[in-house]
Structures are given as structure tokens and as C-alpha cells.
Design a protein around this nucleic acid. Structure first.
Lengths: 176, 176
DNA sequence: TCCATCATGTAAACAGTTACATGATTGC
DNA sequence: GCAATCATGTAACTGTTTACATGATGGA
């Protein structure tokens, strides 16, 4: 049995945390998180959950409240094992490298006419400030919903974002 | 005409920098970079370059050295415009958020039995140390091949990786 | 009544990965 | 002669995105 992708790990983890949990709630959680780089669309979540169920990592039960149907999913023993394996077997360090779309663009800034490079730095800084606001806003709604480990993850997001801001400011000094 | 994806932007940028440039060289550059999170496989690069060519962003010329054929690609005016647009129109701040696979996992560390959480922290730290080594090694080979902006991008990689290490060490203190 | 949200999904198109396939050249 | 690397690509599969589709509920 092959190892989970990051999206599968996140979905399994969310379901385990909020058991019993509907696919809809998983989707809402992904939409609410500012740091979830992957899709929160119906077309990715529903098929993914079916897939996990077919592999026996998830069990689901039909529910009807009034006339509205929904599915309550929970993590099986095999699912918890898969989740543990995803957390434990980290694989190649390259695959765990942090990725930054602003860094990716910075490497090719020479393609921009010199006069427009300062604009890039300004827009990038505005984007990072917006990101900090999103992270702070999420942290407020998030109180005691996620627990200690979600707090540590949020801390990572805030720290990396701050470091990127300092980096951008250094770039500004070095470029002109 | 729709905007470039990050991989398309990187490929166009690499070709523009090394003009005239073969698809093979693009692939080698992606393989050499420790921070290129996307694929360097033939199956992604060759079709992508064909796609860019069909859109008129790239021009290519058949070459034969002895009995060996290759294609020399160069960036067209439209290609340079697309590259500039990719660098200038940053879009939603959420899409520019940095992503960290270790942060993603940290958020779900509660799924791991308490006794195995310290192992995760140890392995994660080893991975980050390996990443730092890769970044430093790349920087040495890279001298004057990429220029000022590639140096700034490398600086981002080193800084973020250092910050993640500090974060992980803080996590260790807060968890036990 | 109407709109937002709850709640589920499917279909088509596109992107990316893995594996395979071909053939030339260089160095041991 | 053989292996590694140069250099190109294709085919099958998997995953993701976008857009569409359905119907219930709650509040203005």
C-alpha cells in the first residue's frame, strides 16, 4: 500500500479530528485555512474521500436530518495507521523543502524592465502584508478548535511570512 | 490569453536567460535546483515547451551537431510579454502564500502516539539540515551562472530554511 | 418570494508522473 | 565493448480544476 499524498493526509487528519465529519465540513475547513495551498473544490474533495473509503482508510454512514442527506465519515484503524505513516516516514528532504512563489518569481526578475522591478517589490510586500492579516484573522476564529499542534502550525506560517518580509526589504536595498 | 502557471513562467524565464536553449538544458536546470518543487521529468517539460511554442511564446529551430539532433528554443516578444505579466500581475495573496510540508504535518501531529512525536521532530530537523546542505551546494555551483536575482532567490531559500529550523526547535520545547 | 448557504455530487478538460522507447556520443 | 550521459519524445494513468447540476433549509 502506497503512502498518502499531502492532501490525503490533511483530509484524513481533519476527519479524525472532527469525527464524525462530513465531506462538506472538510471542504469548509480547507477553505477557511489561509495556508492550505491545495484545492478546496468539490471536484477534488468528494472523489478523494471516496478513494480513501475504497481503500478502507475511512468509514462513512448515511445520515438524514429532516429531508437533507449527508455522510458522516470517520477514520478507521487502517486510516489512523496510514496517517501515522504519513507523519513518520518523511522521505526525501527535497520533497519537504518549503516553496515560495515570490522566491520563484524573484529568480527571474531580470526579465522585467529595470523601471518595473520596484513595482514588483511593492506589490509583493502588499501581498505579504495581506497574508499576515489572513493568518492573524484565522488564528482568532481558530481558538481551541484545533488545539496545540494547529497553533504550532500557525506559528510557522506567521514566522515564515515575517521572514519573507524581511527578505523582501533586503532585496529592495540590494536592487536599486 | 490566460496567464502563465509558475512552471511555465520558470521554463520561459530559464530559456530567456540561456538563449538559445534546448529543452534538455531546461530539464537539467530544474533538476539541479534544490528549490524547484515541480517535476523535472521529460513527460512534463517536453509537452510544456511544445505548448508554449504553439501559443507563440517560444520559437524553436532544429539543430544537428554531427548526427545528433536537438532543438534550440528562444523567447519571442510575446513570450517576454507573458513573462513580464507573470512577474507583474501577482493575483490573490493567498496564491502567493509560502507552503511548508513540515507545517502541514505539524498541524496533525496529535494523530501520532505521544511517544513518537519526538521522533518526528528529530527526523524533521535532519531533513532541514539536509536541505541547508543542498542549498549551500547549489549556491557554489551556481556562481555567476544566474546573476544577482538568482542569488536573491537563494537567499530566500536559506533564510526560510533557517527560520523553519528555529521554529522546529521551539516546537520541541513546547511539546514535551 | 428570493437569496445565501447547506450538502451532495458528476463530466470534461488539463496538468503532471511514471515508465517506456529510441538513438548518438564520450570516456573507460 | 559497455556504461553513462546527451537528447528527444510518447503513452497510460492519476489527480486537479472548472463548471455544471440537484435539491433542502433558513432568514430577510
Amino acid at each position: 500500500m502506497s503512502s498518502l499524498t499531502d492532501l490525503e493526509g490533511v483530509v484524513l487528519g481533519l476527519i479524525r479530528r472532527n469525527e464524525p465529519c462530513t465531506p462538506y465540513l472538510v471542504r469548509k475547513a480547507l477553505q477557511a485555512s489561509p495556508t492550505a495551498h491545495f484545492s478546496d473544490s468539490a471536484g477534488s474533495i468528494y472523489p478523494l474521500i471516496r478513494r480513501l473509503e475504497k481503500q478502507g482508510l475511512l468509514a462513512s454512514e448515511e445520515q438524514t436530518t429532516g429531508d437533507r442527506r449527508s455522510r458522516a465519515c470517520s477514520c478507521t484503524k487502517a486510516g489512523l495507521d496510514a496517517l501515522s505513516a504519513w507523519l513518520s516516514d518523511l522521505g526525501e528532504p527535497e520533497a519537504l523543502m518549503a516553496m515560495d512563489p515570490l522566491r520563484t518569481r524573484m529568480a527571474f526578475l531580470d526579465a522585467l524592465p529595470p523601471g518595473r522591478r520596484a513595482d514588483f517589490l511593492r506589490d509583493a510586500r502588499a501581498a505579504i502584508e495581506a497574508q499576515l492579516a489572513l493568518i492573524d484573522a484565522f488564528e482568532e476564529t481558530d481558538v481551541e478548535l484545533g488545539g496545540k499542534f494547529l497553533d504550532l502550525a500557525n506559528d510557522n506560517a506567521r514566522r515564515l511570512t515575517h521572514e519573507r518580509m524581511r527578505w523582501l526589504d533586503d532585496c529592495r536595498d540590494k536592487i536599486d
